[in-house]
């Protein structure tokens, strides 16, 4: 693990790698999201029970899954940063957190939109929505803690520890909320969980999942690139990098 990670403890090497990967991720994101969304939202068959309103799962489910995925990724980066003291891993944390929080917010928002035709109300204390809401709180905590420190390294360390604590708690929170939900509401409102899904609906969903995964990765990589540049601003390599596409950056700064 260490041998594999070691070259990327150097910000410059990491930056080059990210720079190389980014166009691929971005391109594949556009393709898979386009296919997934168009297929899912326009061509997949309607549901016999829910009509067309079910189509929001092509956004809701992937967003929900990768809101959790991003949190795990954040905690893994935090653990790497703490155990091996690699600063490039520390900087991944502020890159991931807002993207994960945005995914969580999308999942909540689409969940509410879906809830309106299904339950006749925007908000129901459904197990999954509640879990997502708590996840959003966890993200907010991590981001607020990171932002509260003047020294970015200390902030990243504190936020890493919190992310790891959160990840240990996440399954406990998830199952406790699910259990709480069945206890208080019975099993009547579990329409989010369909027992089975037709293949014609499944394929676009899988492609949307892939698209959201790539989207999350692309956004994180973009933010990560900026983090690397921001923290290494005074180093020659960052200066050279900025000089190369200076026109864009200078424009932005003005």
């Amino acid at each position: 693990m260490w041998r594999w990670l070691h070259p990327y403890a150097k910000p410059e090497a990491t930056y080059r790698l990210v720079d190389k990967l980014l166009p691929w991720f971005a391109g594949l994101t556009v393709v898979s999201l386009l296919v997934g969304m168009v297929w899912g939202l326009a061509f997949a068959p309607s549901d016999y029970q829910q009509g067309d309103s079910y189509r929001i799962i092509y956004i809701h489910v992937p967003a929900a899954i990768f809101s959790m995925g991003a949190y795990f990724g954040m905690a893994i980066c935090g653990a790497i940063a703490l155990i091996w003291q690699i600063k490039t891993a520390e900087w991944a944390l502020p890159a991931i957190a807002p993207v994960g929080a945005a995914m969580t917010a999308i999942a909540l928002f689409t969940g509410a939109i879906w809830g309106k035709p299904m339950w006749g109300t925007w908000w129901v204390w459904d197990a999954r929505l509640t879990s997502e809401l708590i996840l959003l709180f966890l993200y907010v905590g991590v981001m607020a803690l990171y932002a509260a420190f003047d020294d970015a390294r200390t902030g990243a360390k504190a936020a890493s520890i919190l992310a790891i604590v959160g990840v240990v708690n996440l399954p406990i929170i998830h199952y406790s909320v699910e259990w709480w939900n069945t206890l208080h509401q019975g099993a009547t409102i579990t329409k989010l969980e369909r027992p089975s899904i037709a293949t014609s609906m499944l394929w676009p969903l899988l492609i949307s999942l892939l698209g959201f995964m790539l989207l999350t990765a692309t956004l994180v990589l973009m933010r990560y690139k900026n983090q690397l540049l921001k923290h290494e601003l005074n180093r020659p390599w960052a200066q050279a990098e900025l000089a190369q596409d200076s026109s864009a950056v200078v424009e932005e700064e003005r």
Binding site: I134, F137, L138, V140, G141, A144, L145, A148, F149, T154, A158, I161, L162, V165, G166, N169, I172, I173, S176, V177, W179, W180
Partner: peptide, 30 residues
């Protein structure tokens, strides 16, 4: 845990609540 993470901060108490309350949820439920 929350206290140790916010020690160097001047105004850490609001932040501590923000961090801790979500983690308290399973305990509250059971």
């Amino acid at each position: 845990t929350g206290a140790s993470l916010t020690l160097p901060l001047q105004r850490g108490s609001a932040l501590v609540s923000l961090i801790l309350l979500p983690l308290f949820i399973p305990i509250l439920i059971f």
